[in-house]
Design a protein around this nucleic acid. Sequence first.
DNA 1: GTGGTCTAGACCACG
DNA 2: GTGGTCTAGACCACC
Lengths: 127, 127, 127, 127
Amino acid sequence: MININYMSRTPVYEQIIEQIENFVLVGVYKSGDKLPSVRSLSIELSINPNTIQKAYSELDRKGITSSVPGRGSFVSDNALGILKENNRSRLDELMGLLSKLVIAGVSYAEIISCVDDAFKYCTDKAE
Amino acid sequence: MININYMSRTPVYEQIIEQIENFVLVGVYKSGDKLPSVRSLSIELSINPNTIQKAYSELDRKGITSSVPGRGSFVSDNALGILKENNRSRLDELMGLLSKLVIAGVSYAEIISCVDDAFKYCTDKAE
Amino acid sequence: MININYMSRTPVYEQIIEQIENFVLVGVYKSGDKLPSVRSLSIELSINPNTIQKAYSELDRKGITSSVPGRGSFVSDNALGILKENNRSRLDELMGLLSKLVIAGVSYAEIISCVDDAFKYCTDKAE
Amino acid sequence: MININYMSRTPVYEQIIEQIENFVLVGVYKSGDKLPSVRSLSIELSINPNTIQKAYSELDRKGITSSVPGRGSFVSDNALGILKENNRSRLDELMGLLSKLVIAGVSYAEIISCVDDAFKYCTDKAE
DNA sequence: GTGGTCTAGACCACG
DNA sequence: GTGGTCTAGACCACC
């Protein structure tokens, strides 16, 4: 289910974090669900267990999951809330990117059409 | 004129590249203009000359500038064209970011208002 | 009666030990009293019986209880004495914590008031 | 300067964190100071660089330090404030420990004398 | 079986 | 030289 892009500059463990977070956001993982074990996921992705461990620790730290030694890692109750709040703060990122595009001379119409596409794509997938 | 954010994960030399490219895009630098020398810029920003050199080499490689040993670095004739083309390709990046925001439940209206702000901000600054 | 905090770093079996020891200290369990059976406690807390077993074995080893196979676990005669002696050794722990607080700039008055509170709270509960 | 207790249950990397934090609290490290490099500290303590790295990352995350790749790790401006605030919240920990001691029958006088000792010890060291 | 910690050794981009 | 990431392989306590 998780895809890793080894060419990307974003570290593998962050790619894992992001994709798991997305699974929570779209409802694939719900509060209380158990994540795959460190070892099983490391085998599935043929990635070193330490890398998975790092991703899981970070998710714990963020409050998205809570890991219990000897039991596993579980999605927290307020995971969805945390994520929605965090991602909302990415509007800043959007502003930055938009500024660059505007400077580059991309027209208003083009960007709006892009926004429309994004909404269409995501709502289609949700249906 | 150039601001470096040492806390950012994007390397210093890329920050330099991006800001010089922006200067070209908004017309601060025009075709044929001479960039500050490696040494002077390194002193001004109190940055290692090697880092400036790396930024300038990269700009050369992209075709934005052309450096003449012993003379300096000059903005190419087709610099503006290249940049506009390159930056247009960032629409992919925009799509990626938008998808995340949509998944996070950010509303259409919010995003549109953000786009509007970006256009207002940039056109105001241009006037 | 026993509360387990799965998020805590202290292992479950130690949490069980500590709470049973506290019951002895405050007089809920007296010498000769029978502890709940491994199985019943494991069901009540929905915890693996092995974990309960480990806690009981440790209590035996400390001399707090003595288990008779097939009969159950019973609070030893000198349990209270052992515990009072053991816990007194925690004054070291107190010193360590106090040092940190002092370094962090917590005032003498604040700490004393904290001590007073602890005594009030505990004596109230005992009444 | 840093002492590691390998017998302790608290992980090595946390021991490092705590001792560095203490150095900041007592003024050995001030805002802007450079921490020893990951490698040099790993050699000095004969500990694997990864373990040091983990400690430094955590310090970064807490906002105590900020690490710049290629430059080093530096004590943040507000490090002292963060630490004082954090440690003040350890008063809860103190309450927990005190309760145990009170239950164990340690007298008020004994605890107060312990508090006095802690203050004497720390103020002596500071002079 | 689980998560967590640690070592050893390597590589990378950056300065 | 710096911090950061990753792999390989090991060990631990806990369940």
